[in-house]
Design a protein around this nucleic acid. Structure first.
Lengths: 210, 210
DNA sequence: TCCCGTTTCAAACAAGCATTTGAAATTCAT
DNA sequence: ATGAATTTCAAATGCTTGTTTGAAACGGGA
């Protein structure tokens, strides 16, 4: 039989597929990504996709769900409002950026989310309601407190958009940033520096709004 | 011959292809878009792509170039710095948003640009250098004047990013916005309202920064 | 009317793709 | 160790895609 003892444990094809697929979906997008590239990088057979998931689409859903789960794990279930609103605003931005850019997370998590924003699959609705809606509510509260309820609901939302847009920018527009200001590619600022800047910028603007 | 007088003028297959392709590329992205869908919507034969352009890729380039050209046309060649920096900041934001969202432009122009940011083709380099770099320089100047040169170069850039990120948000993240705050889909704010908000928000923040 | 360059078209082509298949290999309870 | 269930695999299938082709239709100048 000549059997050589090969991989002793952790074959777990399913996990290898999710990791490989996540990276490739994030890099190429759903349609440009091919199942063969995914299975090759995972070191498994093409048919494994059909066996462990039903098809390419369900593999994608599994990847997205994985994303969502570990996002919850990184920052905890969103600390809710006690303490002064300034502090909570800072915490919000900190948590937001860390969920997207934290080095502990596979780098493709954030990229995948960015793709969902511009090219939403049917999974976006679920993500929005489960993961983003609660954050939006907390942001609404923070702004209301900071402005002492003196601005209209529409403006509260616009202010909220102004805050999160600054965070999302570093996620969405990497290609643009790196071309415009190459230093961002060679010596990227730490997440803390980004948080500091966005917090200071936003707080000053909100204070002036009331 | 029984010849019925059909379309008297403006057959111009080339133009029909660019319009149709622009809308479809913007909606589906380059890879998901199929040449047959493009030619069907344009009401021409598939082979027309090969005849008028060489292939799908060059059709895409043509569409992008068209985009870039009319963008120049809409706002003029970027008014440069005279007048107080506050006024120029406002003008900058106004022009930026109008270039992206102005209803005179086909709605797919902005979407295509957004796609280029997240999924850059080799055309992005050209767009950045020709269309965006000059704007970035102007923004740099404005911020330097507003802060009287008291902040570091890195911070000037971060502030600039904070301003444009707010503009790009309404371009990139429509799917997110409309899900979170459906009123934006039913009664979208006017461009002027967006300009007012982003200008006020950013100016207050910049003034506090110095 | 005839000719000739240009433009359109239906049909075919070839490549790439996701998916399926049926058998081999592996695992594991008995 | 034996047999059933699970998991892997090489190969094939069928569909969709971008691209090509060769002929037909068109348009305008002799």
């Amino acid at each position: 039989m000549l059997a050589i003892a090969e991989s002793p444990i952790i074959p777990d094809t399913r996990r290898k597929l999710i990791d490989s697929a996540g990276a490739i979906f994030a890099e190429h997008g759903f349609h440009k990504a091919t199942v063969r590239e995914i299975t090759d990088r995972a070191g498994v057979n093409v048919a494994a996709i059909n066996y462990h998931f039903r098809d390419k689409a369900e593999l994608y859903r599994a990847v997205l769900s994985e994303c969502h789960c570990t996002a919850q794990a990184v920052g905890g279930p969103l600390k809710l409002g006690d303490g002064p609103p300034e502090e909570r605003l800072r915490f919000y931005i900190d948590q937001f950026l860390n969920r997207l850019l934290h080095p502990d997370r596979p780098k493709w998590h954030g990229m995948l989310m960015a793709r969902e924003m511009t090219e939403p699959s049917d999974a976006l609705d679920i993500i929005v309601e489960e993961a983003i809606r609660p954050q939006a509510r907390e942001m609404e509260k923070i702004i209301n407190e900071l402005t002492k309820g003196k601005v209209s609901k529409d403006r509260v939302w616009m202010i909220g958009f102004s805050v999160v847009s600054q965070c999302l920018f570093y996620l969405h527009d990497r290609p643009l940033i790196e071309r415009l200001y190459p230093k961002f590619a060679s010596k990227p600022p730490s997440i803390e520096q980004l948080v500091d800047h966005i917090y200071a910028f936003s707080l000053a603007a909100i204070r002036a709004a009331k």
